[in-house]
Protein backbone atom coordinates (compact mmCIF):
# COMPACT_ATOMS: atom_id res chain seq x y z
CA UNK A 1 0.00 0.00 0.00
CA UNK A 2 1.52 3.31 -1.06
CA UNK A 3 1.18 6.37 1.12
CA UNK A 4 -0.39 9.26 -0.80
CA UNK A 5 1.75 12.38 -1.04
CA UNK A 6 -0.06 15.70 -1.48
CA UNK A 7 1.51 18.92 -2.67
CA UNK A 8 0.58 22.23 -1.10
CA UNK A 9 2.59 25.09 -2.56
CA UNK A 10 6.22 24.16 -1.98
CA UNK A 11 5.39 21.59 0.68
CA UNK A 12 4.86 17.86 0.27
CA UNK A 13 2.50 16.28 2.78
CA UNK A 14 2.51 12.55 3.46
CA UNK A 15 -0.34 11.52 5.70
CA UNK A 16 0.02 8.00 7.05
CA UNK A 17 -3.42 6.42 7.42
CA UNK A 18 -2.66 2.82 8.24
CA UNK A 19 -0.35 0.51 10.09
CA UNK A 20 2.91 0.56 8.18
CA UNK A 21 5.06 -2.35 7.18
CA UNK A 22 8.80 -1.86 6.80
CA UNK A 23 8.40 -1.92 3.02
CA UNK A 24 5.75 0.82 3.15
CA UNK A 25 8.19 3.02 5.05
CA UNK A 26 11.03 2.36 2.62
CA UNK A 27 8.66 3.09 -0.26
CA UNK A 28 7.72 6.39 1.38
CA UNK A 29 11.39 7.30 1.79
CA UNK A 30 12.11 6.61 -1.87
CA UNK A 31 8.96 8.39 -3.08
CA UNK A 32 9.67 11.52 -1.04
CA UNK A 33 13.30 11.56 -2.04
CA UNK A 34 12.44 11.67 -5.74
CA UNK A 35 9.37 13.91 -5.44
CA UNK A 36 11.30 16.57 -3.55
CA UNK A 37 13.38 16.88 -6.70
CA UNK A 38 10.80 17.05 -9.44
CA UNK A 39 8.27 19.09 -7.46
CA UNK A 40 10.96 21.52 -6.22
CA UNK A 41 9.57 21.26 -2.69
CA UNK A 42 11.27 23.15 0.14
CA UNK A 43 9.42 21.33 2.88
CA UNK A 44 8.07 17.88 3.71
CA UNK A 45 5.52 17.12 6.40
CA UNK A 46 4.94 13.55 7.54
CA UNK A 47 1.79 13.17 9.60
CA UNK A 48 2.09 10.09 11.83
CA UNK A 49 -0.94 10.79 14.03
CA UNK A 50 -2.65 7.59 12.84
CA UNK A 51 0.32 5.43 13.87
CA UNK A 52 -0.16 3.47 17.08
CA UNK A 53 3.40 2.16 17.13
CA UNK A 54 6.69 3.81 16.23
CA UNK A 55 9.34 1.17 16.74
CA UNK A 56 13.07 1.37 16.10
CA UNK A 57 12.74 0.67 12.38
CA UNK A 58 10.04 3.32 11.83
CA UNK A 59 12.01 5.88 13.81
CA UNK A 60 15.25 5.17 11.98
CA UNK A 61 13.50 5.36 8.60
CA UNK A 62 11.78 8.67 9.42
CA UNK A 63 15.12 10.09 10.53
CA UNK A 64 16.58 8.84 7.26
CA UNK A 65 13.86 10.64 5.32
CA UNK A 66 14.68 13.89 7.15
CA UNK A 67 18.39 13.49 6.37
CA UNK A 68 17.83 12.63 2.71
CA UNK A 69 15.37 15.44 2.03
CA UNK A 70 17.73 17.88 3.73
CA UNK A 71 20.45 16.90 1.31
CA UNK A 72 17.89 17.44 -1.46
CA UNK A 73 17.12 20.95 -0.21
CA UNK A 74 13.92 20.40 1.75
CA UNK A 75 13.17 20.46 5.45
CA UNK A 76 11.16 17.60 6.93
CA UNK A 77 8.84 18.00 9.90
CA UNK A 78 7.29 14.97 11.63
CA UNK A 79 3.91 15.85 13.10
CA UNK A 80 1.30 14.10 15.19
CA UNK A 81 3.28 11.67 17.36
CA UNK A 82 0.67 10.51 19.88
CA UNK A 83 1.41 10.80 23.63
CA UNK A 84 1.35 7.02 24.19
CA UNK A 85 3.62 6.51 21.21
CA UNK A 86 6.07 9.15 22.46
CA UNK A 87 6.13 7.46 25.88
CA UNK A 88 6.85 4.03 24.37
CA UNK A 89 9.58 5.50 22.14
CA UNK A 90 11.39 6.97 25.14
CA UNK A 91 11.13 3.68 27.05
CA UNK A 92 12.55 1.87 24.06
CA UNK A 93 15.46 4.30 23.92
CA UNK A 94 14.47 6.11 20.74
CA UNK A 95 14.55 9.80 19.96
CA UNK A 96 14.29 12.03 16.92
CA UNK A 97 17.11 14.38 17.89
CA UNK A 98 17.92 16.72 15.05
CA UNK A 99 14.55 16.21 13.37
CA UNK A 100 11.94 18.95 13.63
CA UNK A 101 8.65 17.80 15.11
CA UNK A 102 5.28 19.47 15.58
CA UNK A 103 1.96 18.77 17.18
CA UNK A 104 -0.11 18.90 14.01
CA UNK A 105 -0.18 19.98 10.37
CA UNK A 106 -0.48 23.68 11.26
CA UNK A 107 2.67 23.54 13.37
CA UNK A 108 4.41 21.63 10.62
CA UNK A 109 3.60 24.28 8.05
CA UNK A 110 4.65 27.02 10.46
CA UNK A 111 7.99 25.29 11.11
CA UNK A 112 8.68 25.03 7.40
CA UNK A 113 7.67 28.67 6.86
CA UNK A 114 10.10 29.81 9.54
CA UNK A 115 12.92 27.98 7.82
CA UNK A 116 12.10 29.72 4.55
CA UNK A 117 14.97 32.23 4.44
CA UNK A 118 12.84 34.79 6.24
CA UNK A 119 10.61 35.45 3.24
CA UNK A 120 7.73 33.30 4.41
CA UNK A 121 4.44 34.80 3.35
CA UNK A 122 5.51 35.56 -0.21
CA UNK A 123 4.06 32.21 -1.27
Amino acid sequence: MGIPILKLGHVLIASIQDALTDNDLIQLRDDLSSQVGWSRATGVIIDVSALDVMDSFATRTLRGIADITKLRGAKTVIVGIQPDVAFAMIQLGLDLDGVTTGLDLDEGLAAIGRGDRGDAGHG
Binding site: D52, V53, D55, D84, F87, A88, Q91, L92
Partner: peptide, 9 residues
Amino acid sequence: GSDLTIIAT
Protein backbone atom coordinates in the same frame (compact mmCIF):
# COMPACT_ATOMS: atom_id res chain seq x y z
CA GLY B 1 -3.87 3.44 26.75
CA SER B 2 -0.11 3.60 26.89
CA ASP B 3 0.20 -0.01 28.08
CA LEU B 4 -1.34 -1.19 24.78
CA THR B 5 1.17 0.87 22.83
CA ILE B 6 4.03 -0.39 24.99
CA ILE B 7 3.10 -4.05 24.52
CA ALA B 8 2.60 -3.59 20.76
CA THR B 9 5.97 -1.83 20.46
